[in-house]
Design a protein around this nucleic acid. Structure first.
Lengths: 167, 167
DNA sequence: CTGACTGCAAATCCTTTGCAACTTG
DNA sequence: CAAGTTGCAAAGGATTTGCAGTCAG
């Protein structure tokens, strides 16, 4: 269900996410705290896409060591996006986050049955995007492409279910 | 600011949106009400992209003739999407709606300065999408592509502002 | 008539914010 | 120490829902 290893090959970066974030904090006169350190570690030890809620579910509960309040989780996720560590986008009302730092540009396929996000890379898509933008005099800052549908696995399962229903 | 005429040529359809929705209601044993009639008319008399709030702002106020409560507006927008009259997608946290029935498939450029949505059509994008999906064994139901950036107009204005700032 | 629909208000969901206490540099 | 941070609880915004009265078929 979850794919904790990256689908795409990593991009070479000179700093670890931790170091990179530290740099970001220092250049802005912000502080390195236990909560922030813990969250960088936690987030970069998994690779799945996640939303704030899913993240908090795997964090220590209130009272336990390393507990981080939800306000801080939300605040910190925004900092990670500012710092270029994470990217975020909206999907079905929730904000989904994914690794950006050290991870290549890509787009998504979204299975509306199992609700899993799959990644793909397409240089042709980027080229096409640039052409369209040029035509319209647009200065591009980025794009978001999501293909909706049903993944291979879910197509199989559905077929199975149908057969069973007939018995 | 608003473009009340379509950017793209309409697609031929045999029924008006009103008729099409009536058909939808009948096949499901649902009812034709004044609120629903009024909303179809209102929505298909303009062409801009809109969210629930923007729509309600141009509807009659409470107490006036043809007032529709916000609960009904939300309920009806969902029906329009079900009925294939409208499409919806998420942009910066809000749900944006646009005409679907009688309007060709297209994608968007979003200007992050003036927050306007521009449309474009690209057959190459659809082809590319189908190829990617085929590779991954995906059964496509649709896609959403948005290019973010700054539109021609806003680029101009910004340049002007910069010059003024220097005076 | 009967079930669908509407408006109202309350409830939800997700996220942000004000504030007092607590850290970090 | 001063300023940035945190947790808490309360506030927000957008959307949904329960319910009793209303209306269409």
């Amino acid at each position: 269900m979850s794919n904790s290893s990256p689908s795409l090959p990593p991009v070479d970066v000179s700093l670890t996410p931790q170091e990179r974030f530290e740099e970001y904090l220092q250049t802005r006169g912000l502080r390195q705290t236990n909560q922030r350190k813990f969250l960088v570690d936690e987030i970069f030890s998994h690779h799945e896409h996640f939303d704030a809620d899913e993240l908090m579910e795997r964090l220590p509960r209130k009272g336990a060591k390393n507990y981080v309040s939800s306000a801080t989780v939300y605040r910190t996720l925004r900092e990670f996006v500012d710092a270029g560590l994470l990217k975020s986008f909206q999907l079905e009302g929730r904000t989904v986050y994914e690794h950006d730092y050290g991870y290549p540009q890509h787009d998504h396929l979204y299975c509306t049955v199992c609700r899993e996000l799959f990644e793909f890379q397409s240089e042709a898509l980027t080229t096409l995007r640039d052409e369209v933008a040029a035509e319209q005099g647009f200065r591009i800052s980025g794009h978001r492409m999501i293909i909706h549908g049903v993944c291979r696995e879910c197509s199989k399962n559905r077929r199975k279910k149908r057969k069973q229903d007939l018995v």
